[in-house]
Amino acid sequence: MAARSGFSGWLHRASDSDVWWSFKSSPMTVTAAVATVLIVAIAFLSPVLAPHTPFDPATLNLIDGLKPPAMLSSDGDWTFPLGTDDQGRDVLSSIMYGTRLSLAVGFASVVVAMVLGIGLGLVSGYFGGTIDAVIMRIADVQLTFPAILVALLIDGIVRSTISVQRHDEIALFVIVGAIGLSFWVQYARTVRGSVMVEKNKEYVQAARVIGLSPLLIMVRHVLPNVTGPVLVIATINLGLAIITEATLSFLGVGLPPTEPSLGTLIRLGNEVLQSGDWWITVFPGATLAALVLAVNLLGDWLRDALNPKLR
């Protein structure tokens, strides 16, 4: 195979690779990928695409309150295709902004968990011995707390130390930190396992013969070779993180109503569900389900595609 340089070479290799091939030959995966890209694109373009700016109090009018979805009811108003909530906020716009927040929290917490987990996993696997034992025992303890409990704990501590108003301001960071902290163990364990395999390979020994420092060896040689499994966990974790955020927000310890994520929207809608205004909670719920399902399907495919044993 001729080696081509630059981007065209990369494109050529990518389109020729086994991973791309396995992607193309799975209609389910292609559907999931299209759905994910669509949801992410719409969410992040929501300031442009959304018909209303639901969280600007100046634009809200209580007269528009609790309108049913236009497409389903003659009472509806086509300026609010999916209806409005009790404040007169457009549900469609709320979902778009909410999805953006949910995704942001999901991505950010996955990054936090990844950085923490990969770092600790590398150190643990490469050096072994006491450092390894200490890190892994901390991981064991961490695993005995469910993610929700950790998040509640951190949120509780933050709430008790700072004012409510300040809390709303930093709620985003608290929840990202809380979710990130509860997910790092999986990365650390996977990376540690891979590192222990890789570090005995001869290419790492060759680097040691040259006299490279352990840090350089880890970053330059070992890390690029353990990214496969990390990528798989990250994709699967993204779905989990979004769900966890939604759960926390539903319980009222996540994002505040002034900045509602999908979970907050579901909670707000749930409060008025008894009076028959179902659309306020069902549409955000369906969006959440679709998003998480699509991401999980991608994760499952990636796991199979990168696992040579299943090929």
Partner: peptide
């Protein structure tokens, strides 16, 4: 000084599939 010594001795490994970083 250590690096200067190391430079003068190198190693060739057994398994040509494991001794080169695949990435």
């Amino acid at each position: 000084d250590m690096a200067a010594l190391r430079r003068r001795m190198q190693m060739i490994f057994q398994d040509p599939y494991a001794s080169l970083n695949p990435r």
